[in-house]
Each structure stands twice: as structure tokens, then as C-alpha cells.
Design a protein around this nucleic acid. Structure first.
Lengths: 252, 252
DNA sequence: CCCGTTCTTGCACGTTTTTGCATGTATCTT
DNA sequence: AAGATACATGCAAAAACGTGCAAGAACGGG
């Protein structure tokens, strides 16, 4: 594991959980607590986190819930992506959200799959340029830097002109009661607009997102077809979702 | 194994896995770690990756999965791009075409330049994601694979809703009589639509394009503000263009 | 075809960075 | 107040780095 990668992991953890416990992270990553402390000290000196006894907190509470600078798609996301890619039928049309998990889906699509992909993410579009059989449609609009996707009025309007069989959405929070949530209002609206244009909508959520909620709701459970996750089917949150009637696709 | 092949492999790895560990790659390819480090250093100097202790990471996290290959811009294009980037004023709005030369322009824009960039190329958009001060607006539409830009009716329509101070267009043919031409009718129409939305339009053309013409005309000379090229000012084609009243910006 | 030049590549060497441990100190909990 | 936990610092081993150098390949001109 690269040192820089470790730093990213810490920031990601900070954004997702809102705190870091040095001891836990050291155990999780198999490194010494000293290394974690050193990293945290460095991050704090750059103003990226606030050092506290036992670990660290976000520099600004507002940053909680925002996707951090994630560079490496963890194994879980890749498995989720692989399952999701299996849902895409030849000849069908897919609306693909932005984000690292959705990017992993794009990468997991067979090179010669003949289908239509509609996306508001230039990153996703760029990744699919070398799929010769894939028809690509880009939804334009103002690009939101932190998530690297087109959002806002223009993008939502552009979405009204398309339709698809399947929509794959990434979210930051998956909670039995709060539903599906994300950290930005514009993004939430865009995701809603995308879901509305597809016959079926599935949520991509690696296990660490289960049970968490962010500020803005994307959709209630009633409006989605299912959840794709790498969590254990006997996970507490998963079981509560199943009880609610949500279809769960696992990577098992 | 060819050196260029090795570089491609590294970029591919970076796109797929999001990171490179020098030691692992050296073992996998059966070459010395020194060579890997040298390659990584070169790639980093071109802005294609970010060097870290132990290996490398994508230049920007948003660029994970972004096809960075084929982007080794020749020297001529880079010089043209540098001149073009100098035309962009802080606070101004720029319409940027697709293509390798335009991509070089995007790379040549100062990291902290506060301006608005409007483009129909997901590749360009992805390249500008790490410019924090740059406002990005993406024009959507059907993606034409061979040129990797949004074209067609939807894209042209989207272009009607924007305006800018400057438009930088790439073309495949630059001819004193035939004017500016390209090999695809839809692309030509899109370029026309872009040029119509900017106060000034400049053409990016490395020297090998001078004197050639393709099938579809983009614009006549009267409707452009100037040509940016790395050709010699005493080049025969350049002199004929000057005689026609075309402003020529050279890299000299 | 041959020879000089240039570029690439791997190795050796000294330097820098990272990392875990030990030690002593500070801080928290009870 | 006392024990436990977290912390900073110093230290040493290991890993990664940069540089110089030499052998070899590719190239170009004669």
C-alpha cells in the first residue's frame, strides 16, 4: 500500500464517517499506529483535518458526506460494478451515473457489448470511448467539480429527452428509513431526473455506505428496483431492507 | 518490449487500477525498477500522472479511468497550444473544440486561471477537472467515437444557449482557397455552431495541415479571426493566407 | 557496409524517506 | 491520585530515490 494511497483512505474515511480512530485504522490497514498518527499530523498541518486525542475529525463539519479524493477503486466496488454490468442487456439502453463506482461499472462493461449508454459524467464518457459497439450519449450542463458530473437546470432538462431500460445510480448514503441520500442538492436532483427516465433503477452501494445518510434525499425506496452491494446478506441493514421489500443483489 | 509500449501499459494500469506500484510493475514486466521510475518521471513531467513515493497515482483522482493514452502531443502541437492558451483572458469565456490539439490547449491553461470553458468533448472536460478556478460547461449530445466529441442535432442545439469571447477550433484541412475543412459533415456543422457563439474564432493548425483540404467545409476565411500555427511565417501557404488578410499567429 | 553518435537500459553507490519500535512525557479516565 | 491510554521524539533498519557510468542497441552518414 502506497503512502499516498493511505492518506486518501484516511480522507475518505473522514468524509464518510466523520471521524478517524487511529487505533482502528491501524488495525484495519495492518500498519502501526505511529504511521497513522504521522499521517494525521501531516494532514492536519495541511488543514485537511483536525487533530484530536485518539484520532482526527474533519477540518470543517461541512465536509462530512462529500466524496473524498478517491484514487483507487477498492475491491468491493469492483465486485459491485461487475454485478451491475451483468444487468445490461445487449441492445438495451443504460443511464449511468457519475462517481467511482459507476466508473468501475463502465470499465466492467464488455468491450464489444452493443448497447446505448447515457451519462452526465465526462469521465465515464471518456472511459467508454474505446468501446466500439457502445452508443454514447452525453448529457450536458454545468460541471460540478467535486463530483465531476454535469448538474443543474440544463443537465436536468437534457435528461428529459432521453429514456432507457436501466439506470444505475451511485449514492453516498443508504439507510432503511432515510432512503437514498447524497451530500449535494443539485446532485440529488440530477439523480432523480435520471432515475425518472429509466424503466428500472438500481442503486450501487459498496458495504461501507450501508446504514449511513447524507443531507439530501435522492429517492425513497419505493421508487427503485433494487440495491447492488457487496455486503453480507445477513448484515443488519441488508436484512432491514429486505424486510421493507427492497430487492438486494449481492456479489456473493 | 518497446519503450512506448511500456508507457502505454503504465497509463493503462493507472486508468484501470488507479495506482502504480513501481516494484510490482518492474516484476511483472521483467524490467528494472529504475526504468519504471524513469518512465513515471517522464509521464509526470507531461502531466499524465502524479508521482508519489513508491509509484504513481493519476494526475487527478477524477481522471481515474480516463483514457490518457494517445495524448502524447507532438512538439508542434504543444507550441500551438501554448500560444492559444495565451489568448485566454482571466474572467473570460472560451469555447474549446475537441481533438488532440485542443486537448493540448486544455493542458496548457494555467492551473489557477479563473475562466469559463465550454466544450463538447468529454476528454477535454475530464482534463480540466483539476483546474479549481475554471468553470466548466459541457455541451451534450451523441458522441462520435472517431473524434470523441458530442455532435448532431442535440449538441448543436445545446450550443445555441451559450456564448463566449473566444472559440478555438481544430480542423483537419487548412487551404487558402478551400478554407477550413474537416472529414465529417456532422463535425463540420458542430464546429460552425461553436464558432457562431463566440466573438472571436481562432483556428489551431499544426504545420502538417497547411495546404490540405478535406471533404466538408467548416468555415470560409472571412468568418475567422486568425490562425495559430507552428509553420514558418515564410511558408508558401502561410504567405498566401496573409495575402488574403488572415491574421497568423506563429509560435516563433 | 562500416563507423561514429545517440539513446536506452541496468547496475552500483550514496542519499533521502519511510516505518516500526523503544523510551519518556502528556493526557484522559476512574 | 493512580492507572491506562495516547502522544512526541529519537533511533535504526529497510525501502525508495537520484545520479553517474558503462554495455548494448538503434540510428544516420559516409
Amino acid at each position: 500500500m502506497l503512502a499516498a494511497e493511505r492518506r486518501d483512505h484516511l480522507l475518505d474515511l473522514l468524509a464518510r464517517e466523520g471521524k478517524i480512530v487511529a487505533k482502528d485504522v491501524a488495525a484495519e490497514l495492518g500498519i502501526s499506529e505511529d504511521s497513522v498518527r504521522r499521517d494525521l499530523r501531516d494532514l492536519a498541518s495541511e488543514g485537511l483535518c483536525q487533530r484530536v486525542y485518539g484520532g482526527a475529525l474533519p477540518a470543517s463539519p461541512a465536509l462530512v458526506g462529500y466524496a473524498a479524493r478517491q484514487t483507487v477503486a477498492p475491491d468491493g466496488k469492483r465486485k459491485v460494478a461487475s454485478v451491475a454490468a451483468g444487468l445490461v442487456r445487449p441492445g438495451g439502453a443504460l443511464i449511468l451515473d457519475g462517481g467511482t463506482t459507476a466508473l468501475a461499472v463502465a470499465r466492467a462493461l464488455p468491450q464489444d457489448l452493443a448497447c446505448t449508454v447515457i451519462t452526465h459524467s465526462p469521465t465515464i464518457a471518456a472511459a467508454l470511448l474505446d468501446h466500439p459497439q457502445t452508443e454514447l450519449f452525453l448529457l450536458g450542463g454545468r460541471i460540478f467539480k467535486h463530483s465531476a458530473v454535469a448538474c443543474g437546470a440544463a443537465a436536468v432538462e437534457a435528461a428529459q429527452n432521453v429514456s432507457a431500460d436501466l439506470c444505475l445510480l451511485g449514492v453516498t448514503g443508504v439507510h432503511p428509513e432515510a432512503g437514498l441520500t447524497t451530500g449535494d442538492a443539485e446532485e440529488a436532483a440530477m439523480k432523480r431526473a435520471l432515475a425518472a427516465r429509466a424503466a428500472d433503477t438500481y442503486i450501487l452501494a459498496s458495504s461501507e455506505k450501508l446504514g449511513t445518510a447524507s443531507r439530501f434525499r435522492v429517492l425513497p425506496w419505493e421508487e427503485i428496483s433494487g440495491l447492488i452491494t457487496d455486503a453480507d446478506p445477513h448484515d443488519a441493514v441488508v436484512e432491514r431492507l429486505t424486510a421493507r421489500g427492497v430487492e438486494i443483489l449481492t456479489t456473493g
